[in-house]
Design a protein around this nucleic acid. Structure first.
Lengths: 209, 209
DNA sequence: CTCATAATGGCACTCCAGTTTCGTTAATCA
DNA sequence: TGATTAACGAAACTGGAGTGCCATTATGAG
């Protein structure tokens, strides 16, 4: 007897089902990086993935849901964080990592597309938020260490500092034609450190800048 | 004799043509705010604008080009800048303006949609970049005044400081589920001021943060 | 290994976004 | 004011995105 509420792919997730998912997500990433979010059709993805288009429509249904799944997959592949001993050093490492990712043609286009998709569907937006929450949490400890060392005032919102590093880089990517070079990354890190030291990111406080 | 290369709407831009453009852009804004960038079809816009769908397809052709035109229109409607006498005051005013705009359901959705559209087409991206260039230029003088007053070091990139105020707000809008409140706006302004004072936005220099 | 059935994939079908055609309306110029 | 023709709009048309059906494949349990 068939269980009505079960989504396809959940009862027998191994073997072919997993292979199909991996292949489709790979193809989706390629297609997004190439054509962007608009002008993307599932039939094309199915062709690239060498999978029947019926399967893609049945398991994901829409482009935005497929992107949400892609984001879940991307979130699982976490990059290890480097430690340099100083807040500026750590944040520069973070900023350069983000900058390199966004400046890379394929990755940059993919991130743009993924952000665009997230503006169109709540489920996708949720997946995107989870993705960034994970990344931010991964790097937050280096700010805590800076607090412990006395580099940054007690009560600083460590997550907000990490976000402050990425924000100007993403803002550039989306709203400006200027290139994303290492100087931009370093500037982002330096600005975040300066603001954090000045107490601009104190929790539940307006700061004293 | 018909001029082959002339786009429709360029030879007789007055009267009805202008009315149609205004009506369609209004409808496009409404539709974008309601349905987002995806799930937007030109036939729906034509219906809202009480205009033949043939006209919309002929004059704009695709959603992304229509959005580019909408952005050109939005760029022309400039908001006057307030002056408070201090850099922090000016930037807080700017941050709150941005925050109120993005937090407003209609405007926020519209901006998200417009950014999404810009990731899909070069022409639209160009229009978006122009839009922000204009806004940044509008506010840049208040940073120059701060330099003249000695609040901020000589050689600071005034445009970069303005962008630094908006960046965290847009980053929140797109990548986080956290609400955009006045505290977020104030924090963005304070961080920008602290970083600017510390020399993080010195032109062609890595700063000394 | 064998069985029950989850999941896939090909094919035919539907439906609507986007196009073409052509008659009507009205902007611009003399 | 009238002539010219740019621009609009209704209707008919078309291609392909998305769906339903069913035979085939192969997963996972016993």
């Amino acid at each position: 007897m068939r269980i009505e509420g079960a989504d396809p792919g959940t009862v027998r997730p191994g073997g072919r089902t997993a292979r199909v998912r991996a292949s489709v997500l790979q193809a989706a990433g390629d297609a997004l990086a190439e054509h962007g979010f608009a002008g993307l059709d599932l039939a094309d993805i199915a062709r690239r993935a060498e999978v029947g288009k019926t399967t893609v429509y049945r398991r994901w249904g829409t482009v935005t849901i497929l992107v949400a799944d892609l984001l879940t997959d991307m979130a699982e592949q976490s990059l290890p964080r480097t430690e340099t001993g100083s807040l500026l050093g750590d944040l520069k490492a973070n900023a350069r990592l983000v900058q390199r990712t966004l400046a890379d043609p394929r990755q940059g286009a993919l991130f743009k597309a993924v952000i665009a998709a997230a503006t169109c569907e709540a489920k996708t937006a949720e997946a995107l938020h989870r993705f960034y929450d994970i990344r931010v949490k991964e790097w937050a400890p280096c700010v805590q260490q800076a607090i412990d060392r006395g580099e940054v005032p007690e009560g600083t919102d460590v997550h907000e500092v990490i976000r402050a590093v990425s924000a100007p880089l993403y803002y550039r990517l989306l709203t400006s034609s200027g290139g994303l070079d290492e100087a931009a990354a370093d500037q982002a890190a330096e600005a975040a450190v300066a603001a954090a030291r000045a107490g601009a990111y104190l929790r539940g406080d307006e700061g004293h800048a």
